[in-house]
Amino acid sequence: MSLRNEEAYLARHRNRRHLEQAIVLWVLRAAALISILTTIGIVAVLVSQSIGFFQEEICVLNEGEPIKPCEPGVNGTLTRVGIFDFLTGTNWSPLFKPYREVGLSFGVLPLVAGTFLVAAVAGIVSLGLGIGAAVFLSEYAPDRVRTIIKPILEVLAGIPTVVYGYFALLTIGPALRFVIGDDNLGTFSALSAGLVMGIMIMPMVTTLSEDAMISVPRSLRDAAYALGATRFEVATKVVVPAALSGIVSSFILAVSRAVGETMIVYLAAGGRPNLTFNPLEAVQAMTAFIVNVALGDTPHGEIEYYTIFVVGLLLFLITLVMNILGRWVVQRFRQQYE
């Protein structure tokens, strides 16, 4: 091959390689775009269907009318659900027609309260157990115990939520009724759902808190030990304060998980909206309501169909705020050590 031919060959080859790279780059960019499109899709679907919810005209019975199918102009009036009524109303029963008063059928507070009641029980359980376990793993356990215990706790996080639903409804529920009496606790309760959910999110609190505790420098502990502190004093007066931002963040993220969790509350917490702060009662969570309606054959394009999206939007916003808050706490309050 002459020198000139060889140069031409190399140039051709180089062009081909660069063309290939240019094509690949566009393909990769398109792939990365999908994750952006997913977010846009979620927001667009939730917002557009929620607008549908607030624009849908529903027939509400006039005052004093007997409960009969509602006809506009005859015994009822067409009206829309206001955002304020939706956010502050204390009764949620959008599936029962005819509607008597907007705030009496489309007030989302019972679902929000149900969600947070279960999440509060779960939060207390996971905070107590999770931080206890994290302190044990980072301050007390020898390395060998740590490498055995950590994967076992991780298994708890890997068990499908439907299995926890089964456990809450058929094992923990009956066990609780056995302890505190059948009269005090029904088949469904926020307590049994919350306890099991607390166990489920405990590994998350443990792992994230332990990461924060492990990164507290050895020298701080040694200084405290040199002053004669006990392990408990080192843990509570040195390590936990230094790792506090990580611990708080792990707790917020875990509660956010609990708020978004579906199958445990669907199977074990109950199916009737109930505005209460008593964990012994049955409540319906936002996620459980969504699944409940999606399972029925609600026709597309009616207000019942829109309700799941407006509740979904509220759920999305609540968890988004909590996730951002959880990350912000770490960034804002993290102790930096040299």
């Binding site: 994750s35 997913t38 899709g41 269907q49 979904g312 999305f316 968890t319």
Partner: peptide
């Protein structure tokens, strides 16, 4: 955006799938 997506409740993905 990717780390936020990882924190979206799974049932919300169900709503996305149902609508889209």
């Amino acid at each position: 955006n990717i780390s936020n997506l990882a924190g979206v409740p799974s049932v919300v993905y169900g709503l996305l799938g149902l609508a889209i």
